[in-house]
Design a binder for these strands. Structure first.
Lengths: 332, 332
DNA sequence: TAGTATACTGTTATCGATTACATTAATTAT
DNA sequence: ATAATTAATGTAATCGATAACAGTATACTA
């Protein structure tokens, strides 16, 4: 672990000159530059990040908050963040926010301690605005990714959830369905309420009065989707199609339908949201709305890095495009 | 961002005394301790990690190398690592090794720069011994998790893969199968060859001569499993059961069987490996060998931290227990 | 009472980098 | 030929913490 001093001694120059060579300053003679580079190679020198970051009071680490690492939706976004960050020389600190309550203080410390240069949050349930931001230094960069925040003071990367849901339900209507149920989650999540809105709007446009009992709620996981579907299956008049606000819930719904001895899509069509890898591996394969998860991650990281480099004074939110992927669960 | 100097001034003591209070040294008077604590609260002080780590030339970050973040097997392990690490005050730097070739140098720098205190690798394809280790400082801690390394100089956390595979195939034999195929991957992975061995041993014990054509190989993903199964389906005499060395490949196999108009388990039973969350959501649900992924992660992190704290001079490898989970894909 | 141990606190060097400032050498302008 | 620029380099302070060492005050021992 050679230090800059050793390199300087080896090269017969001062540490300042070595530093200038490392950081590509002008005003270094070719002679000095060459002997420094030679010394660096000889000693296998790497600048120590701690020393550098302490002095410049900067850091090349980004903190990513995500509700659950093993949720494929988030991990795909994380992949995008990671790739972009690495290309720009940034490291990713991950923090799974689901696990416990000490977490808040743990990651807020990360920011306070200047360990991370900024926070990218994938957690839609985290109240960034009212809980997180006030605890951070003024101007500390935060980006929300995959959902839009409660209010618009925090920049985000997302898709137009209402529009995407609208189009998905429109598609169901176009294929002849009129009794279309919604499987959704708590209204705490903006994306959930936005997709709910899109659903309502599509029905309204077709002159269909959405029934109270068509809205079934559950946890955002497989069991939650399964239970929500089971509730729908107790209705006197069954829906002929279901729009679930997430693929995993939709996959749970598929299961409940099959358990009831019914068939998808002939008895009940199902449409999901997110296009997680597994949505293409189910039986039947799942019609879904594709979110550009990887791109969302890339964009979030890029926005953060631009902000850190002051290329952009303020971060502008970004709406990416979505796509309806039609598969077996709705094909008649 | 108050510094230790400001706290010292506020409390009317020297920085040394503040440092002693922070680090719970004895020999601090109650009077000093109280005024320091008061100053810390008042200034909302948090020790700066960069300063501390530079001085102590230590760090509380661990680097985790994983082939793919979005693979549920790895992400579940990562969850265990993360939880344990955080409880002990360590941060996790993730590095997805699949993506590109600059990666090697990127993460080796992390170690060289003393940014990370140790490396936990989940990547079975990474040649830790011959490629990674020689580039690191002598004694730099590395742990392999989820697979045993090529040779035994690097400590690891894993299960007994050969035994687990043996028991899985034994179960198929016990339920009357005699033509049992194997879907596996490249022999580059130790876990793959170990599971292959277990398969061979079980067949041999039952006096069954394993046929060459029963061994079908593919990439370790959904498509790989599907293609490998398709190859098996071209045989004149079809196998009645298939053991796949990973759940995702097994799920691909289920798909291929269904596409061929056959039924699982009545025509061909399928058994997977890993017990990823999705193995319980397929149709039919997948019989599989459960690896304690979360525990593996916890153990790996714990071993690393013990090593770093010098509780353990050398790290001892750990074999955790597995379990056969019987579900619909093998139930007749 | 002098001497010694003990408890507590402060001074200062240090980790490894960056950078403002000073200095010197070389070049150009007058 | 002298003054004024410009280029190249070095000196030393600095970031925020820790810790060796020294120093002071108090209690205890002989």
């Amino acid at each position: 672990m050679a230090s800059i001093q050793e390199v300087a001694r080896e090269a017969g120059v001062s540490t300042a000159t070595v530093s200038r060579v490392i950081n590509n300053h002008p005003f270094v003679s070719d002679k000095s530059r060459q002997s420094v580079e030679k010394a660096i190679r000889k000693l296998n020198y790497e600048p120590n990040m701690m020393g550098r970051n302490l002095r410049t009071s900067s850091t090349n680490m980004l903190l990513v908050l995500l509700p659950s690492i093993s949720n494929p939706f988030y991990s795909k976004i994380l992949q995008g963040i990671q790739d972009t960050a690495r290309r720009k020389g940034y490291y990713i600190l991950v923090c799974e926010t689901d696990a416990s309550s000490e977490i808040q203080s743990f990651f807020i410390n990360t920011a306070k301690q200047q360990l991370a240069a900024g926070i990218i949050s994938l957690d839609p349930s985290l109240d960034l605005e009212d809980v997180l931001l006030p605890q951070l230094q003024d101007g500390y960069p935060i980006i929300q990714c995959g959902d839009s925040p409660q209010n618009d003071t925090i920049p985000y990367v997302s898709i137009d959830n209402a529009m995407a849901a609208y189009k998905a339900v429109k598609y169901l209507l176009a294929t002849g369905h009129t009794r279309i149920a919604l499987i959704t989650a708590s209204d705490d999540f903006r994306y959930a309420t936005a997709r709910h809105e899109g659903y309502m709007k599509a029905l309204a446009e077709s002159g269909i009065q959405p029934r109270e009992e068509w809205i079934s709620r559950g946890e955002v996981d497989y069991e939650g989707g399964r239970l929500a579907m089971q509730k729908l299956l107790t209705l006197d008049e069954l829906p002929t199609a279901v729009f679930a606000i997430g693929d995993i819930m939709a996959i749970g719904a598929l299961k409940a339908i099959r358990e009831a001895g019914l068939h998808t899509p002939s008895d009940i069509a199902v449409i999901g949201f997110d296009n997680i890898p597994f949505s293409n591996m189910t039986t039947p394969t799942l019609t879904t709305v594709s979110q550009p998860m990887y791109d969302m991650g890339c964009s979030a990281a890029q926005m953060m890095i631009d902000k850190l480099n002051q290329k952009e004074k303020t971060i502008k939110s970004l709406i990416l495009s979505h796509e309806l992927i039609i598969r077996e669960s709705t094909e008649l």
